[in-house]
Design a protein around this nucleic acid. Structure first.
Length: 426
DNA sequence: TCTGGGGTCCTAGGACCC
DNA sequence: TCTGGGGTCCTAGGACCC
């Protein structure tokens, strides 16, 4: 059996952990740049705050109901996520867990006898909540897709299920599928949901009963076939190896206010390049490919409307590197190539691809080996920035004023990762 | 004035090989 | 009148996820 364990309203739960005055109160957390609402407590959902809705469109309901609002505080969420995942590793065994996202993990429970599943899940929930202070829900079923369904249903009826649902019989599975509209399925997004609707397929039980070949044709080839089989209880999405390295790493951000000048754009792109370089060094990789994009706001019908337009370009490097100097140099070249005067830029990003382990970099016969590529300088910079504070040592190309920086006006303290921001008790 | 960030997997089609 | 078959590799783009 597979389980998915998922933190309830994760970002909001992290915020509430250090704010007892907000327990049982409505809370929302905003995306970067304070743009959208990305996490809501049940109380906020009940008041009608939409998921992924723009913040400014919800300001009325938020103010009227005295909903607490926070900017994203990724230091805090990242640290608490680590605590939850470490707890699960201890409880289930490190090789039985796949960390799927910041607030979710799949567990392989094949070592647990079927009649002990409920007790095992209950124990895990209890201990995780006690050790971390974060509430979780658990879904258990023969396949990943079914366990996601179980998890979702357990959250919908927290009192009835006490946050745990186990689909261990054909009847329970049928019942769960009938209750689940296709657009709630893991792997069915907007496009496929609309398509299924056109064919008159509303709930997951109807989909489960479609022929495999029909799904191959209409739901993205083998992806559709896997979906059907998973719905029938046949596990065909394997647990992922935790040691796999990422294939691309990106740093992309909206600007705090629109950027018009090339110098600002170059600063931002250099900043993102150096952040992305840090990230690939952390997983001991070097990049073969650097990709830069910028987003402008296209005008619609001669007037301002939200209409983002992206332009990209990329370079394949002569030799894979994780060196910030070099990556900044290429990133700036690409930014210059993309820049057009009299344009309002809203966002930019740097993506590093073609990642290879930095121990086995293929050298290029036609470029001289550069001394500055020696990793020791980067290691020193990373160590200083990690142990002291971000960006204590930085490249001048990344700017000093950074007046394009994103907005984050409502961020809470980094209670668990900064000595000077510790929780205080008077 | 204002709409996030960071990923994965799959397919089709083109270039190329023998 | 008539022009093969069977592959591989790469890229762009679409769909999805949280």
């Amino acid at each position: 059996m597979k389980a998915i364990i998922d933190c309830n309203s994760f970002y909001c739960s992290c915020e509430r952990l250090f704010r007892p005055d907000l327990w049982n109160k409505p809370v929302v957390v905003l995306s970067n740049n304070d743009g959208c609402i990305v996490s809501r407590t049940d109380e906020a959902k009940k008041l009608g705050v939409g998921m992924a809705a723009p913040y400014y469109q919800n300001k009325d309901v938020i103010e009227k109901n005295d909903i607490a609002v926070f900017s994203s505080n990724y230091h805090l969420y990242g640290d608490l996520s680590m605590r939850v995942m470490d707890t699960l590793r201890i409880l289930a065994g490190a090789h039985n867990i796949e960390v799927y996202s910041v607030d979710e993990a799949f567990l392989d429970l094949s070592m647990v006898p079927e009649n002990k599943l409920y007790d095992a899940a209950g124990k895990m929930k209890e201990i995780t909540e006690q050790w971390t202070g974060i509430k979780v829900s658990i879904g258990v079923a023969p396949s990943k897709v079914l366990s996601k369904i179980a998890n979702k249903l357990s959250k919908k009826d927290k009192e009835g299920t006490r946050g745990i649902m186990i689909l261990d019989s054909a009847e329970k599975i049928k019942d769960a599928l009938e209750k689940t509209p296709v657009n709630d399925l893991w792997g069915i997004g907007r496009q496929y949901a609309a398509k299924l609707q056109n064919f008159g397929i509303e709930n997951s039980w109807q989909l489960r009963n479609m022929p495999e070949e029909w799904c191959r044709k209409n739901l993205g080839g083998v992806v559709g076939v896997r979906m059907i089989r998973e719905l029938k209880g046949e596990s065909c999405i394997p647990m992922k190896d935790p040691l796999e390295i990422k294939k691309m790493i990106a740093t992309t951000r909206m600007f705090g206010k629109p950027v018009h000048k090339l110098s600002d754009l170059k600063e931002a792109v250099a900043t993102y390049a150096s952040r992305a370089a840090e990230k690939i060094r952390r997983q001991h990789c070097a990049a073969e490919l650097i990709h830069v994009f910028v987003v402008t706001n296209g005008l619609l019908n001669q007037k301002y409307e939200y209409n983002p337009q992206a332009k990209h370009c990329h370079i394949t490097l002569p030799e894979a590197t994780s060196n910030t100097n070099e990556l900044i140099r290429y990133a700036i070249l690409l930014a210059e190539k993309l820049f057009r005067p009299n344009t309002k830029y809203m966002k930019a990003g740097v993506i590093l691809g073609g990642l290879v382990p930095d121990t086995s970099i293929q050298s290029n016969l036609f470029t001289p080996h550069v001394q500055s590529r020696l990793p020791s300088l980067m290691t020193v910079i990373d160590n200083i920035n990690f142990s002291m504070r971000d960006d204590l040592v930085k490249y001048v190309a990344t700017g000093l004023k950074r007046n394009w920086k994103m907005r984050q006006q409502l961020r809470s303290k980094r209670y668990t990762t900064r000595w000077d921001e510790l929780f205080e008790i008077k």
